[in-house]
Design a protein around this nucleic acid. Structure first.
Lengths: 202, 202
DNA sequence: ACCTGAACACCGTTCAAGT
DNA sequence: ACCTGAACACCGTTCAAGT
């Protein structure tokens, strides 16, 4: 397919560097990689990256943005094909969140690492907290339907995000299964759901 | 007090290195520090550390162990002076957990970093998941008293730990306050509590 | 037994120079 | 406009040598 062998100018080195980094994250152990290795994989000198990213932190920040975008895609997919906000769709979304972390452990850790975040202050609203936005919208719908507790939807969403974030990280690090058992993840999601639904008597 | 100036032999260099590292964590931005800087602070050659730690990861692992110990101390302190497991004492413990993270952000991140954990496989039961053990015990008591929902205490504790862990990290990174508001932390703790207490009608 | 100094391989980053 | 090569400051780690 790619019939042009190797030219001096790469074409889209920026994209190639990002893809190489995503590959390393997908294979690798840990989210720490070297800029020189990425350049090596892209078949380019290790200084070429600096024409496309001011420094390594900028590359990490861009990778984090890609990760947040993919996470949002996964969450949206879990919620689509479901008519409205129900307990089932909440559980599906929660599973999708944790599932994203377990499928992309290194990327997920990178997304919340200090290195990636130090430059993410720019336009962090439109992507970083996408999960939070989705949760807010979901909870507002659930409250209108009456099955979610009344109260500040943003605060409930924050609690939900915190719960799913911590659960995802503990699952990635395999810190729950040894002592809690194989049902740790499902049980944790159930506790969160229970904390958000309206009390039956109120 | 310390009337002996500087000897060739340090005395307790191991402890001095750990203290210097804890100082850097307490001051510093980020939990990344250099072994050479720690040695510099301890007033010693940068190769001296290798007589006390096999490598940098071992130092990090030891620091993480110290952090888990301090966290347990804080949680125990929050639960002491309280006659028994009540909703109030649960909230106090939850606040102590998040408070520990906010007071020691770099140490808390280090405790759950891959670098510190790669060597922590040894004797990780007796310290790493101390918070989980405390939660399990607390929940078992609350269940006996009847105000906590019936079910697998270890699973509830796992859910609680996940919730507090995620909340702590999001608070450290200041990811909740901007969009959720100043009550984000208290609200999240309330949601967790709601998810664990027994339904009033059951 | 404990620490130092030189050395090695490596990394992020810069910059003059090539195409 | 885009990439390379040499160079710089730095780091983790090793090891022979000092006290």
């Amino acid at each position: 397919m790619n019939d042009e062998p190797k030219r001096y100018h790469h074409g889209d080195l920026r994209r190639a560097l990002l893809d190489a980094a995503l590959d390393v994250l997908a294979e690798g152990q840990g989210w720490k990689f070297t800029l020189r290795e990425i350049a090596r994989r892209a078949g380019v000198s290790h200084t070429a990256a600096y024409k496309h990213f001011p420094d390594k932190a900028a590359l990490l920040s861009e990778l984090a943005a890609i990760g947040f975008e993919r996470l949002r895609t996964d969450l949206d997919a879990a919620l689509s094909n479901r008519s409205q906000a129900s307990a089932d769709s909440f559980v599906a979304m929660a599973r999708a969140y944790v599932g994203f972390g377990l499928s992309n452990p290194n990327l997920y850790r990178l997304m919340f690492s200090a290195d990636a975040r130090q430059r993410a202050n720019v336009r962090r609203d439109d992507r970083g907290e996408a999960a939070l936005d989705i949760l807010i919208e979901f909870i507002e719908m659930g409250q209108r339907s009456g099955w979610l507790r009344e109260g500040d939807a943003r605060e409930f969403a924050g609690a939900g995000w915190a719960h799913l974030h911590g659960l995802t990280l503990l699952m990635i690090d395999d810190l729950l299964a040894p002592k809690v058992g194989p049902n740790a993840c499902e049980a944790a999601i159930a506790v969160l759901l229970e904390g958000l639904i309206a009390s039956p008597q109120k």
